[in-house]
Amino acid sequence: MMVDADKPGAALADDMLGFGGREFVTVKQLVLRPAGVLQAWMEQGAEGGGAYARPLRLYLALNAFLMLVLFLRGGAGYMLEGLPPDMMGALQERSGKSTDAFAADADGWMTLVMVPLLSLFYALAAAPLLRLWDQEDLGWRRGFRAAFAWLCAWTVLILPLTWWAYGKSPLAALISLVVILLGVIAFLRMGRGRWFRTTLAGIGKAILLMLAVQISGLIGGALVVAIGLLGASAMP
Rank of each mutant, 00 (worst) to 15 (best):
S95H: 09
V224M: 08
Q29C: 04
G21W: 10
I215F: 14
S98H: 06
R141H: 07
A226Q: 11
F102T: 01
L60K: 11
F19A: 06
P85A: 02
P128F: 07
A90M: 11
K97C: 03
A51C: 01
A173G: 14
L112I: 05
A234M: 15
R197W: 11
R192C: 10
I215K: 05
V27F: 07
L118W: 05
F187I: 02
T111P: 08
D15N: 09
F19N: 05
K205G: 02
T198Q: 08
T155A: 13
G36D: 15
V224T: 09
A186P: 08
S119I: 07
R142P: 00
F71W: 14
P116T: 06
I185M: 07
R73S: 12
D6Q: 04
A10K: 03
I215S: 05
G231I: 14
A165Q: 08
G49N: 07
A46P: 01
Q92E: 14
G45M: 04
Y59G: 05
A35R: 14
L80S: 07
T162L: 08
L161I: 07
L62P: 11
A53M: 09
R54P: 04
Q214G: 00
V27Q: 07
I180M: 13
G96D: 04
P160R: 03
A226E: 12
A125E: 06
V25L: 14
G96H: 08
L12V: 15
Y166S: 08
V178Y: 04
G183S: 11
K205E: 03
G49W: 07
G191D: 07
V178P: 02
C152P: 02
Y78R: 03
V115L: 03
K28E: 14
A10F: 11
A149C: 15
L181I: 03
I215P: 00
P236R: 13
W164H: 01
D15S: 13
V3C: 00
G18K: 10
M42V: 02
G48W: 05
F148S: 02
E93M: 07
A153G: 15
M235L: 15
A104V: 01
W109L: 11
E43I: 00
G82V: 04
A5G: 13
L211M: 11
R54L: 02
